[in-house]
Write a protein that binds this DNA or RNA. Structure first.
Lengths: 215, 215
DNA sequence: GTCTATAATGAGATAGAC
DNA sequence: GTCTATCTCATTATAGAC
């Protein structure tokens, strides 16, 4: 594997990535110099360049880690008749977006520094939209929501927009600098609010009861 | 005035700003060098620095122009009983956001290069939200929409998010490079779709008729 | 794998002549 | 107001010793 996941590998590479993630989240990739990354780690810049020859490579490695984590929370999720599973997914997604918020907040900068990621970011975004579509199809099949195809498509697009930009919304409009569980729940509620008008009586009953069948 | 609006003023300053707006929209403020701006204008970098000592000052002047244009489309708009006026406002807003899209797409970069704009950007965002709130109050007073305060507040937030990020959505998910009337209409439809479930019978009748009273 | 140099770059900024 | 010439400086990047 091209990854630093092999057994006896020294962990400097992983430490570098962890520090990058933290610093990039704080001030954005363009505002963090290689000198600062090295200093934070207590290693030399030359050493840093042994592991990553360019900042671009750090961004690529970080994106791969992000991809893996995203894949993990989406994997094999079945929504079926339980809307709380969708809320859980949303909260998991929002939490991840917070941990990797520089990808969202500094999207243009990331694109500038690592143009090679463009296609992969697009693909990730496709997957996100597909995931929303899948969840909606499941809820519709289970008789929880209903509406014309046009209405539901519009809801899907709005749900994608609100969830994708939620973290940035918190930052720009509410000066949120550290996300809490409440912020995530709030975001999930905003998205779920988009569906509320399209709930069937059965969907409303279950939503009101706070979830599906016990356990 | 500190502006280049005085009568006999040579227009180099205005030409600089126009070129900046174009180039920043194309590739973002961080990706456009002062050398390139000067070259595009066919003037010398030294001359450029006669007009703007720092890139930050260009951004501030551009933001002021944006503010003025935004103020013009929002000024004294009364929504009352005609929902189409709101749609018109939305389209005007989207059009402006397209013309100044670098402020949205490169928000983090703008903040980095011109930290002094932070408060004014926040204030502009406040005004946008207030404008949405005002429009909703007007529609509610006219008996076009109805809902609990919580529902309407959630709709308001979602409307702000979808409208603010609509231009960026088009760019990232649909690779839109030149905006058309259709894109603006589509965006307006997405936002209006947020209100649709809360229309009163009277609101539905008017919306279906495609607007208010003739003329 | 890690360090100490040090080179190479290129952007932002300025002084002063015209 | 505009130009030429120059400067500063942060950042990226590399060579080579340990």
């Amino acid at each position: 594997m091209a990854d630093g996941t092999a057994a006896g590998r020294p962990k400097t590479r992983e430490r570098i990535l962890a520090v990058c993630q933290t610093l990039f989240n704080e001030r954005g990739p363009a505002d963090v110099t290689t000198a600062e990354i090295a200093a934070t780690l207590g290693i030399n810049e030359g050493n840093l360049y042994y592991h990553f020859q360019r900042k671009e490579q750090m961004l690529e490695a970080l994106f791969e880690a992000f991809e893996r984590e995203l894949g993990r929370i989406a994997a094999d999720r079945e929504y079926g008749g339980d809307p709380t599973r969708y809320a859980d997914y949303l909260r998991g997604w929002f939490g991840l977006m917070w941990e990797w918020r520089f990808f969202y907040r500094d999207g243009a900068t990331v694109h500038r520094l690592a143009p090679g990621l463009r296609a992969r970011i697009q693909s990730l975004s496709d997957q996100g939209q597909a995931e929303i579509r899948r969840a909606m199809a499941g809820m519709r099949a289970a008789g929880l929501i209903d509406g014309t195809p046009e209405e539901l498509e519009r809801v899907m697009v709005n749900a994608w927009i609100v969830s994708t930009y939620w973290i940035d919304y918190l930052r720009t409009r509410h000066a949120v600098t550290a996300i809490t569980r409440e912020h995530l729940d709030w975001g999930a509620a905003q998205v779920i609010g988009l569906y509320a008008p399209y709930l069937t009586p059965e969907g409303m009953r279950i939503a009101r009861a706070g979830g599906g069948a016990p356990t």
